[in-house]
């Protein structure tokens, strides 16, 4: 069952990438599946519509639930990171305030690998941010602010 949902999520990602103008081969490379599978997906075959419904519901959950569910469905963190990045509909802007002490807890917390430490301060890549706010939970100085834009 989780495999079906994983396929559903890959299907949604494939559609998104297709809309963005990517070729079947590029999509296959990005998602780590055969080119023929991608072609099947995009031609509407080999996948139950129910799986796609479940997958779509997952993408519409709160950002944290979407991330956590996706991480649970995929074995590889690298793959769940890609799926979340491609399928997320919402955009966020992350600001790290000067009160940051550079402890690195947010770097560990971020599943999207969106945060890096530079000069004793965390720097977040808003493009990568999925809005899960796990970093905010960890931050000891309450220095991270995430806004939906």
């Amino acid at each position: 069952m989780p495999k079906h949902i994983a396929s559903g999520l890959k299907y949604l990602a494939a559609v998104k990438l297709k809309d963005a103008g990517e070729s079947h081969q590029a999509i296959a490379n990005e998602l780590g599946v055969d080119r023929s599978t991608i072609s099947h997906y995009l031609n509407g075959s080999n996948l139950s519509w129910n799986s796609i419904d479940v997958a779509r519901t997952i993408t519409e959950l709160s950002p944290r639930d979407f991330l956590k569910m996706t991480e649970a469905i995929f074995d590889e963190p690298e793959q769940s990171r890609k799926i979340v990045n491609i399928c997320q509909e919402r955009n966020f802007e992350v600001n790290v305030e000067d009160s940051c002490i550079g402890c690195g807890l947010c770097v560990n917390a971020c599943s999207m690998k969106a945060i890096k430490l530079e000069s004793l301060k965390a720097h977040a890549d808003s493009i990568q941010c999925c809005g899960c706010q796990l970093c905010i939970d960890e931050c000891p100085t309450n220095s991270i602010k995430i806004l939906e834009i």
């Binding site: 000067d98 009160s99 002490i101 550079g102 004793l120 100085t141």
Partner: peptide, 17 residues
């Protein structure tokens, strides 16, 4: 009474530090 009037350290970017 001990006074610490000068703290000589290398330059630092972080405001908190």
């Amino acid at each position: 009474t001990v006074l610490r009037t000068e703290v000589d350290h290398t330059p630092i970017n972080s405001t908190t530090w």
